[in-house]
Amino acid sequence: MFFDLLLASEMKILEVRNLKVKISNTTVVDGLDMDINSGEIVLLFGPNASGKTSLAMSLLGHPKYNIADGKILFYGKDITNLPMESRVRLGLTATFQFSPELKGITLLELSKALAERNAIPAERVNELIELLKIRHLLNRQVNVDFSGGERKRAEMFLTALQAPKFVVFDEPDSGVDPDSISLIGRAIMKMREYGLKGALIITHTGFLSRHIDASRAYVMINRKIVCTGPANILSSHILSYGFDMCIAQRGGKYALEG
């Protein structure tokens, strides 16, 4: 099993084939394909309600999202029917668009529990605390009265302590001040230093792309991927022209694929 994973590391970290996802009877992802290679950070753009969060939660294995068709492969292993707990154990996780308040539990307690279970050395914990500027939050209850940026930074901190292999970051830059965006970007790069093998970053604005070294980007509109291309080109097009161009070129790859 371990050997299989080792071999697989030479392969794609994530492959999504013709993925169709439903919540009750509503289709929220409709025939989506995506590939992410080991070592790659990939952006996912798209307007509101295009299905980005649904994709993130389906990759994580959130029980509310039912996979109606298609396949998800993680390091070549079919995880389509694996429950969330098993996926997280394999090293795949996601951050949430809105991380919840946990009354009565301090950030310090939660981070200690994670660092202990994942054998994260104290100096690395400290480095992350400094990098994300969250020391003042440690003795406070998780997310209670945190600002938007503090919430995202706290979640980034805890996620880093999981030592994951692959993370879907769901809008880590939304509702966040510019300083926090740069800290979050640096934290993602730091996670890569510590063994993060790949990431899919969902973003509205692309501001985060200035702080991270993303290779490619996808655009998701109306429950499907409509175009893909190099991250820098695609994000500057979207920042200048919005999603219209992608819609016009729906299904095509335009001139973006370098």
Binding site: G104, N118, Q162
Partner: peptide
Amino acid sequence: EEKILWLMARGFSREEAESILVKGFMR
């Protein structure tokens, strides 16, 4: 359920997540 799932996404089992939330509630 959302809190439990968020904690599970952070790598805790369902039982651990519930226990963390109960402990927080009681404090």
